[in-house]
Amino acid sequence: MYGYQLRVTFEESTGGTWPLNIGQVYTTLSRLERDKLVCPLAESGTGQRPYEITDAGRAELALWFATPISHGDRPRDELAIKLALALTTPGVDVGAVVQTQRTATVRTMQEYTRLKHRTDRPADLSWRLVVDAMVFQAEAEVRWLDHCEVSLLRYGPPSVSEKTPVSEQEAGDEAEREAAR
């Protein structure tokens, strides 16, 4: 298989959810060749160079499939950080932050579901499962947001925001009182 074919096959399998730059495909092929995981074959009549996986490449691939993805390797969760900061920053309506995110996430889920609804052909299974992965991840986020909301109701915001002025108006009032003293 040569570079362009690899890109097309990858994108068909994943429904274009992870678009590949052709340059990136060739860079990766060169690295794989350097590491002896693939080997180049003779150029075709049209000037394309196909590659073949080596035994070492097959072993590496088997290892990749057999190894679970580590959560530690994923980027930090910006939403969790945002919620944590919202809780400790004066003047932020945490409930509104939660609801805004929930609406946006459900909207995204609606879009994915609408795409999924267009086809239930067996041939599209790999693509549908990729969309399902995104739907389930978004669902987990909504469930976590529900959990945050219930926790807020139960415990209320941390005391730091109770001690600190909660709006610019109040901050101004506080300053005036301070000046009057």
Binding site: E11, E12, G15, G16, T17, Q99, R102, T103, A104, V106, R107, Q110, E111, Y112, R114, L115, R118, T119, R121, A123, D124, W127, V131
Partner: peptide
């Protein structure tokens, strides 16, 4: 999607008009 809290609609979510923009679907 209508979000209900304590007997009130607090927010509503509708889909984009062009969800195709999100993905390239093999379904056509």
């Amino acid at each position: 999607v209508v979000f209900l809290r304590d007997g009130l609609i607090v927010d509503t979510s509708g889909p984009l008009d062009q969800p195709e923009e999100l993905l390239t679907t093999p379904g056509g």
